[in-house]
Design a protein around this nucleic acid. Sequence first.
DNA 1: ACATTAATTGTGT
DNA 2: ACACAATTAATGT
Length: 212
Amino acid sequence: MNTIVEERFKYLFEEELLSKIARSGQFKTVSEGDLLMTIGQKISHMPLILSGSLKVMTEDEKGDDLLLYYLEWGDTCAMTFSCCSKKTVSSINVIAEEKSEILLIPIENMELWMAKFSSWRNFVLESYNSRFSEMLKSIDSLAFDNMDQRLKKYLRDKALIARGADLIITHADIANDLHSSRVVISRLMKKLEIEGIIKQRRNLVEVLEFKG
DNA sequence: ACATTAATTGTGT
DNA sequence: ACACAATTAATGT
């Protein structure tokens, strides 16, 4: 497992940090649908994603899930970072999108490494930044309520994560992730199909844009 | 292979 | 948003 940590982060971190990561990190594999973190839970570790992808969501008052963003390898959870200085509970749900390998780092190490390693500091800040701006975009398009854009982005992201154009998914699933209703998704999907952006059969969406 | 059923998708109001 | 029609996949006989 040392090897996979190196592979992923060799170019980001110096030797000393790499070995500390490998030593203090707790390796874990999760399979699709596994819950890594739920709202209200105390945060004791921050996850580094080695492979696979995770889905980060909040809940609204009604308990509906709202997708915030995906995490892929090389990412870390920005929300964890914002919580780590104070002892706070999670305000998000994190579930595995697919079979994934992660490394759990105790949050005590965060502050330590932040002070000691500039590469770590950069990594965390960078990650925090990009997640933050992604969330801003999400909120933006949510406010303007143009589902078109949101759906297209969703499909693109999804195809990227699946590393392929074929998504095994139903309209209802999409509607849940996007906080919309199945009917409007169906209508938009129909449009996209006519526009030649996607093709679909039952339980399958092909994103034509993503093909070699 | 066929019929039955369930789940997904399409459409009009 | 709702109801219903049409289509497709899953299952049993």
